[in-house]
Design a protein around this nucleic acid. Structure first.
Lengths: 145, 145
DNA sequence: ACCCATGGTTACATTGAGGGAACCATCGTG
DNA sequence: CACGATGGTTCCCTCAATGTAACCATGGGT
């Protein structure tokens, strides 16, 4: 069975995702998925899954993130109740962040998705190569005369 | 246990997601998550999970998507090997799309995530309300005197 | 006196995703 | 003859996401 000639039809055995009755309008799922889709949320959540961290420590754990995006993303996650924020009234104030129970409950499905991505990344890379180099099979790409 | 006062520390019992040794540079997971994060990919995948569809049928199943984005998103998904494309040489040519085995293998983890989103959407909405209106607890949930 | 670290905020520039409309070729229908 | 449906492609424009850099207040080190 060639991976590229691999049509699957409808298999109704596996968990078939279906969007809420809503269908498309103001879909709450869309809402959540959008956040995970942004550039830093997932990375921050995964980092915090290893334990709470303070702002600058987080900035160092997630390299290439700017202070601005770190603040903003953390605010969104806090607003959504996935992350807590705690300010210690010292000087200078020490601010810690961590996962809430809600945030923690997201880890299993998220980890499953990440796991899928890692596991199938070679297949995806191969598919891209096939698609990019020339859509036909690797060896004799010319059709018979 | 107050939902907002709900720090979870590190619980090492659940599947702890961790990014590849790479860490951040050219993370393959990032790569996959980015695609799922775009506006239409997930919606199209979920739609195709119910069975193959032709281009215009798909356009009708996923309302508010423009032909342009539909074409583009399908191309990406095809390139990544998640979706196949078949052209019937009729006039006018009939083009069908469907999930490949790879695409189908994504459904369980994706469904799990969607399920999480649906299940916890009320909690998220509540958290947002709390955060937006005034951060402190509504009433009796505030700390005792 | 100066620099660094704390945890941000603000202003400004860029970039890329996405929307909208027009165009293309063929065929069947009214 | 004109129109709609087939499955796209191409150009243009806009807006939200993101990056960059500077600034703020405090206190400790050297």
């Amino acid at each position: 069975m060639n991976p590229q000639d691999n049509r699957a039809g409808h298999l109704h055995q596996i968990p078939l995702p279906s969007l809420p009755p809503n269908g498309h309008g103001a879909c709450p799922v869309r809402d959540v998925l959008d956040r995970l889709g942004d550039k830093w949320s997932t990375l921050i959540l995964v980092t915090l899954a290893h334990g709470p961290q303070r702002f600058n420590a987080l900035a160092r754990s997630v390299p290439d993130i700017s202070r601005r995006m770190l603040t903003e993303t953390l605010r969104q996650l806090e607003r959504d109740g996935l992350v807590w924020r705690e300010v210690a009234p010292s000087t200078p104030p020490a601010v810690a962040y961590g996962l809430t129970a809600l945030g923690t409950s997201l880890m299993p499905p998220l980890a499953a998705l990440i796991d899928w991505a890692e596991r199938h990344q070679p297949a995806i890379a191969a598919a891209r190569d096939r698609f990019d180099t020339g859509r036909v099979a690797p060896e004799e790409e010319s059709r018979p005369a």
